[in-house]
Structures are given as C-alpha cells and as structure tokens.
Amino acid sequence: MADFAEAFLNLGILSEAWWLLAMGAGRTIALSLLVVPIGLAAGLGLALLCRRGPAIRRATALFVDLFRALPPLVLLILLYAGLPFAGINLGAWGSVAACFLLNSGAYYCEVFRAGLKGVPLGQEDAAAALGLRPVQALRLVLLPQAVRLVLPDLVSNTLEVVKLTSIASVVSVAELLFQARQAQSITYNATPIVAAALTYFVLLWPLVRILSRLEEARLRSSR
C-alpha cells in the first residue's frame, strides 16, 4: 500500500509538479473553448447545407461519413505530419483546430440534422408566413425546437469533444495530458498522470451526471 501511494499519490511529487498541471489544465480549457464552437459552427453549417436539395445532401453525407470513419488521431497526424509535405504548415494549434473542424463538425452535423428533421415542416412555413426572414426563422423558430429535441446528444458530443482535446498532446500542444507526461518523465513517477486524470474527472463529472439524467428522461418519454 505504501508502494502504491509512493508511485501514484506522491504528494512530494505533486507539490513540485502542480504548476505544470495547472498550466496544462488552463490550456485544456482554452483548447475546449476554441474547438467546441468550431465544431458546433461547422456542424450547424453542414446540417443547413443538407437542406439545400438531394445532391448537396448526398455530398454532405459522404463528407460526414468519411470523417466519422477516420479516427480523429489519424486525421490530426495526417494534418500535422502530412500536410507540410504539400507546403501547408498549419502548426500544432492550427492542425488541432482543423482536425476538430472536420471530425467534430461531422458529428455535430448528424446531431443538428436529426434535430432539424424533428421540427414539424409547418413551423418553417408558419415562420415564413409571419414575415420572418430565413435567418430569423432559423434562429427564433427552428433552432430552439431542434436543440431541445437533441439536447442529450449535443451535451454528449460536447463531452466527447472536450475529452478528445487530449489528442493535442500527441502534436506537442502543452495541454493537461502533455504536461502530465512531461512531469512524469522528469520525476519518474506516475503521480502527475493520476492528478491529470483526476482533473479531467473533476472538470467533466458534472457534465456526465447531467447527461445521465437527460438520457434516461428521453428514453422514458420515448416509450
């Protein structure tokens, strides 16, 4: 037991490494605040594109399926290590942003598409009949109803996106996992990684709880 505490819950190590981890946690939050809006915007854009006729819908579906089939880490490495060969150097943050634009955009698109499909057609006609412009109709009539329909999926997707920011460590963005790895390799002790895992847990646990409630409520009401 003493060995276990020494290796995984070493307070001495933690007192030296905490500032690295704090910086990493800050960057993870910043990264999330960057990529969640990017994914949401791309997803909504794609979902709206889907409504513009069957040809565009099929092209969008192809795009979405392609980026849902490609593991995000593969996409990130392709962007980060492959594109420079074509003279396009996005850098670490740029590659991460582009990766989430494509990958999370594809996932959010599916969610928004399902939500918009669930809003009765009459709603859009009614909004138009009342003299709302298409953008107003979307913002004031369609989206509020669509979002309510797919709220659990939106929350779930967002949780996954925040967790997925940990892949940025692979391209040396100094977020939480990267800093924990640094601290671990300097101190030869796994405590920083345990601390990082606990930090993710503390940050995301409320979201997990809310999600459980939302999902259960929906399953019950669907019966």
Binding site: K163, T165, S166, L177, I193, Y200, L203, L204, V208
Partner: peptide, 8 residues
C-alpha cells in the same frame, strides 16, 4: 465516462 481514454 469522464476521463479521456488516451489518458487512461
């Protein structure tokens, strides 16, 4: 569900 798999 809260901790990223890569971290684990």
């Amino acid at each position: 569900r809260a901790v990223p798999p890569l971290v684990i």
